[in-house]
């Protein structure tokens, strides 16, 4: 390159906006031009500083009133059903991160139950083997929640269905309650999760309450009514749920074990 690149071009180089070919040309020029190199460095250094100046905002808690506004302000369209879809599959792949995230999803639904859970279409949830509300004592679900470590699967009472319950993770919510995420797996669908929910433990009464549950969009499901096309970015949905919750990490297996041994006390 023989001509001096413009400041814009140098900035674009500093920002990584140039094509490979252009970048190579700029680099050759920077080799021989100290002034241009200093400018590029200044662009980069200041970009870091500017960015840093706003990091605290990014990390500060989003005010509840903002979340409430987004979740409950009216729109001109009507909607009732929550569809958690592909990300359910992508996060069921067993990394501990995935578990923590998976756990958070359903918990969030419960955490905001007061404000918008009531908008959910109840028929959506009743199709699953987990229903909102108190968990009856002696049921497989109660056994699973109260006594089994994460990763345990149990058959449901409903013989007619090929569904099984799986407890995924344990964590504390913002009120310090013990909460557990459960999934309903359908053997007939290759053990795909068909629903997910979270139950939290009422320490005083030693009872569990399903605080939130949602059907999971099933890939290649026999029933095409499960499928709702949308441009939803599942990772974003997930992040949204995490934000609402301010979720805590899933308990490590050892911590969970000792809590289980002490009856969650």
């Amino acid at each position: 390159m023989t001509t001096h690149p413009t400041d814009e071009k140098l900035m674009a180089y500093a920002d990584g906006e140039l094509s490979h070919q252009e970048a190579v040309e700029i680099e050759a020029f920077l080799e021989v031009n100290d002034e241009a190199r200093a400018l590029v460095e200044q662009f980069q250094r200041n970009a870091e500083r500017i960015k840093a100046a706003y990091v605290p905002t990014l990390n500060s808690a989003v005010p509840d009133k903002l979340i409430d506004a987004v979740m409950s302000s009216p729109t001109r369209a009507k909607s009732t059903v929550i569809q958690m879809s592909e990300f359910r599959k992508s996060i069921s792949k067993n990394s501990s991160m995935a578990l923590a995230l998976a756990a958070s999803i359903a918990l969030v639904i419960g955490a905001t139950a007061g404000s918008w859970m009531t908008q959910l279409n109840p028929t959506t949830i009743q199709t699953a083997s987990i229903a909102l509300g108190p968990v009856a004592k002696g049921t497989p679900l109660e056994n699973l929640l109260e006594k089994q470590p994460s990763g345990t699967e149990l058959a449901t009472n409903d013989e007619a269905k090929s569904e099984r319950l799986l407890v995924i993770a344990t964590f504390r919510d913002s009120k310090d309650r013990i909460c557990r995420e459960i999934e309903v797996l359908d053997d007939a669908l290759g053990k795909q999760p068909v629903a997910a929910g979270v139950a939290c433990r009422n320490a005083g009464a030693a009872t569990w309450v399903v605080e939130g549950a949602a059907r999971v969009k099933v890939a290649n499901a026999a029933s095409s009514t499960d499928y709702v096309p949308s441009g939803a970015n599942e990772a974003d949905v997930l992040q949204g749920l995490l934000n609402i919750l301010g979720a805590r990490e899933a308990l490590a297996p050892n911590d969970e074990r000792s809590l289980l041994d002490r009856g969650w006390q």
Binding site: T57, L58, N59, V62, L66, I67, V70, M71, T75, A77, K78, S79, T80, V81, I82, Q83, W116, Q119, L120, V228, S230, G231, A232, N233, D236, V237, L238, Q239, G240, L241, L242, N243, I244
Partner: peptide, 17 residues
């Protein structure tokens, strides 16, 4: 886009930070 409205809301929440 009825079913995805809640998803959209959640995505907006995700964008809040």
């Amino acid at each position: 886009m009825t079913g995805s409205e809640t998803e959209l809301r959640l995505q907006i929440v995700a964008l809040l930070p």
